[in-house]
Amino acid sequence: MNAYGRIRVFRESNTFPRERRYTMRAIARIDQLRQRCDAAGWTPTELSRHMGMSQSAISRVLRGQAQPGEKFIAAALVTFGADFTDLFEIDPAEEVPA
């Protein structure tokens, strides 16, 4: 998987590898995000400042009303110094060819 949430699968052929891309949806582990905010003593407003995102975008993800996008995922991982699997998981039902 590369940094943009896509897995690259190569098939062997006589000429050159043919790339197939799969798009997967990341699901935020809201309990983990909230727990880390609480541990840092941050409100959603303070979290939005640390992540460089709007408060409404942060709130929608924390309330479960929106799925995290690439920017949210990258900002959360950098802000909390966490691994992807600490804060997010992949929805296997959403793996579809792009």
Rank of each mutant, 00 (worst) to 15 (best):
Phe84Asn: 06
Ile58Glu: 03
Trp42Cys: 01
Glu94Tyr: 09
Asn2Arg: 11
Leu62Asn: 01
Phe80Val: 10
Ile30Asn: 01
Asp31Gly: 14
Gln32Thr: 05
Ala39Gly: 08
Leu47Arg: 00
Pro97His: 14
Gly81Ala: 09
Ala82Gly: 03
Ser56Glu: 06
Thr43Gly: 07
Asp86Val: 04
Gln65Ser: 13
Thr23Pro: 01
Gly5Ser: 08
His50Trp: 03
Arg60Gly: 00
Asn14His: 06
Glu19Leu: 15
Gly64Met: 03
Thr45Lys: 04
Ser48Cys: 12
Lys71Leu: 10
Ala40Met: 09
Thr45Val: 11
Thr79Gly: 08
Ile27Leu: 10
Val9Asn: 05
Thr43Tyr: 06
Phe88Ile: 08
Gly41Asn: 07
Phe16Glu: 15
Gln55Met: 03
Ala57Thr: 04
Ser54Lys: 13
Ala28Gly: 03
Ile73Asn: 01
Pro44Gly: 06
Gln55Phe: 01
Asp91Lys: 02
Ile27Asn: 11
Arg8Asn: 12
Arg25Thr: 06
Glu46Asn: 00
His50Lys: 13
Leu87Trp: 02
Arg6Lys: 13
Thr45Gly: 07
Arg25Ala: 08
Arg60Asp: 12
Ile30Lys: 12
Arg11Phe: 07
Met1Glu: 15
Ser13Pro: 07
Phe10Gln: 07
Ala39Glu: 11
Arg60Tyr: 11
Phe16Arg: 11
Ala66Tyr: 07
Pro17Val: 14
Ala93Phe: 10
Ala39Thr: 07
Asn2His: 14
His50Cys: 05
Pro92His: 03
Glu94Met: 12
Met51Glu: 00
Ala98Trp: 05
Met1Gly: 13
Ile90Pro: 11
Asp83Tyr: 05
Gly81Lys: 04
His50Leu: 09
Thr45Asp: 14
Val96Met: 08
Thr15Glu: 15
Phe72Gln: 04
Phe72His: 09
Gln67Ser: 13
Glu89Tyr: 03
Gln32Ile: 01
Gly52Asn: 04
Ile58Ala: 12
Arg6Gly: 12
Pro17Asp: 15
Ser54Gly: 13
Arg8Ile: 14
Gln35Tyr: 04
Lys71Tyr: 03
Arg25Cys: 05
Val96Leu: 06
Phe88Tyr: 10
Glu46Met: 02
Val61Trp: 05
Ala40Leu: 06
Leu87Gly: 02
Thr45Cys: 04
Arg60Cys: 11
Leu47Ser: 06
Met53Gln: 05
Arg49Val: 04
Ser54Thr: 14
Gly69His: 10
Val96Tyr: 05
Phe10Glu: 12
Pro92Ile: 10
Asp86Thr: 07
Val78Gln: 07
Arg60Pro: 03
Gln55Cys: 01
Arg29Ala: 01
Gln32Pro: 00
Gly69Ser: 15
